[in-house]
Amino acid sequence: MTAPVMFCYAHPDDETFLSAGLIRTLSDQGFPPALLLATSGDAGHKNGAYRDWTREELGALREQEMAVAAQVLGIADVRFLRLPDGRLQETDEALFVRQVAEAINRMQPAAVFTFPPDGGNGHPDHRAISRIVSKAVTEGHCGSVRRLYYVFSDSLAQEGRIPAVKIDTLHLWPDKADALRAHDSQIEAIRRYFGDLSLCLPERRYEAFALAWEDGAWWPEKTERQALEELGLPLS
């Protein structure tokens, strides 16, 4: 099986928080992407009815929740590495790179999306998956991948980077909200970030991504129009 685009994140729900609009847009255009998650999220928040669940129970539940969210967003394939949640930075680097590269190579994507180097919010797992995906892609382990994108962050803006892809989620919000609701075990954290899911908050409306690497070159200069064309997306 192949997918033209692959998203590589740390936990179930990362894909919806950061890129549900882009994922849904790709799927609607006939390019359903694949998703690789390093963990099952078994160290995640335990709210409501899930407070007394074991890590094993929570991890199994979050994989089930991810399957529902994937159906909502039109994700073609979801794979889990099932590495230790909260301790990705302790994983043997060579093994981690090999596992990520194998997962990417099974899908043969031309473009890969992941966290920026600082993880966006500093989360150690986010930083770890960003580092490992970047090594797998840029050091020649994933021959099909021509472009690596980072979720846009304040740290990238401070470096003078600009988004290559920006998605307005306003018209896609019902799907994004439904995918967020699918991650019910994490709903308290989700509501703290997004508020009332019946509304699209102005500060959560856009998803943005920087083109970090292309065909061996870091930080290529591309217009948003060029980046959208290469992803097969409608031009803004």
Rank of each mutant, 00 (worst) to 15 (best):
L170S: 12
A70T: 07
F17K: 02
P84Y: 07
P12H: 02
L211F: 03
L180W: 05
E65H: 01
R82P: 05
A49Q: 07
E207R: 09
R181W: 09
L37F: 08
T138E: 03
M6Q: 09
F115L: 10
E230W: 03
D125W: 08
E63P: 05
F115S: 02
W213S: 06
A217P: 00
A3E: 08
S144I: 00
Q99T: 02
D154Y: 09
A103M: 09
D13A: 07
S185I: 07
I187W: 09
R127K: 15
V133L: 08
F115D: 05
T114N: 05
G143F: 06
L37P: 04
W53F: 09
W213M: 09
A60P: 00
Y50R: 14
D14R: 06
T39N: 10
N47E: 14
M6F: 12
L81H: 09
S19K: 02
H171W: 05
K166R: 15
R79C: 06
V137R: 01
L26H: 06
L73W: 06
Y150V: 06
E139Q: 14
A76F: 00
A49G: 12
P234L: 12
G122F: 04
Y150K: 06
N121Q: 12
P234Q: 13
S27A: 15
E214P: 06
R205Y: 08
I23C: 11
L180V: 12
A10R: 02
R161A: 09
E229H: 08
D28N: 13
